[in-house]
């Protein structure tokens, strides 16, 4: 499905859509990753570095002797999140991904969530952050807890789940 950036003065506002709650969650995650890194596309992850006109500073957390041209190590992680409503589950899920990406220094490229009630288990895919390859992006400070309401929208071609999310940067 899709995610789309809307106008917001201070932060990033995204409208995310999916055919199922699971797809809505994975699209919301993709929206978030697109802010954090310039090259986070699943197709790109695993390819060699590209010249993106960016510059890397010092002490990048994951370049332990590796370089942009080496074969990327694919990483798979599992996360579990529980909440008190589906909307809050979406916020808590994104907050958990943010935590994993930062602490493990991963560029996340895909998520496969499985939702049961107000809890989820998800497989998260990514690779260690290499600045020359992934480019600089913007750190996300947090996910706004307001305005996130999951809507069910009926259109000609079926039902969509939609949410608008503010990422505080």
């Amino acid at each position: 499905m899709s995610f789309e950036e809307l106008d917001h003065t201070a932060d990033y506002l995204f409208r995310c859509r999916g055919r199922s709650p699971e797809e809505l969650f994975s699209e919301s995650a993709r929206a978030m990753f697109s802010i954090m890194f310039e090259n986070n596309d699943a197709n790109n992850v695993g390819n060699n570095g590209t010249d993106n006109g960016t510059d890397s500073g010092s002490n990048n957390c994951s370049n332990n002797g590796s370089n942009a041209d080496s074969d990327a190590v694919r990483v798979k992680k599992e996360i579990e999140v529980e909440s008190d409503s589906l909307s809050n589950l979406l916020i808590d899920f994104l907050s958990e991904l943010l935590f994993v990406a930062e602490v493990d220094c991963l560029v996340l490229s895909g998520v496969k969530p499985k939702i049961t009630g107000n809890s989820l288990k998800a497989e998260v895919f990514g690779e260690p952050f290499v600045p020359e390859k992934h480019g600089g992006g913007t750190e996300i400070k947090g996910i706004s807890r307001s305005g996130v309401e999951i809507e069910e929208i009926s259109e000609d071609d079926g039902i969509y789940y939609q949410a608008e999310i503010i990422f505080d940067v």
């Binding site: 510059d55 890397s56 500073g57 002490n59 930062e102 952050f129 600089g136």
Partner: peptide, 12 residues
């Protein structure tokens, strides 16, 4: 720029 860790994914 090379001394002060700057940007996403940098550690002290």
């Amino acid at each position: 720029f090379h001394t002060v860790p700057t940007g996403v994914g940098t550690h002290a």
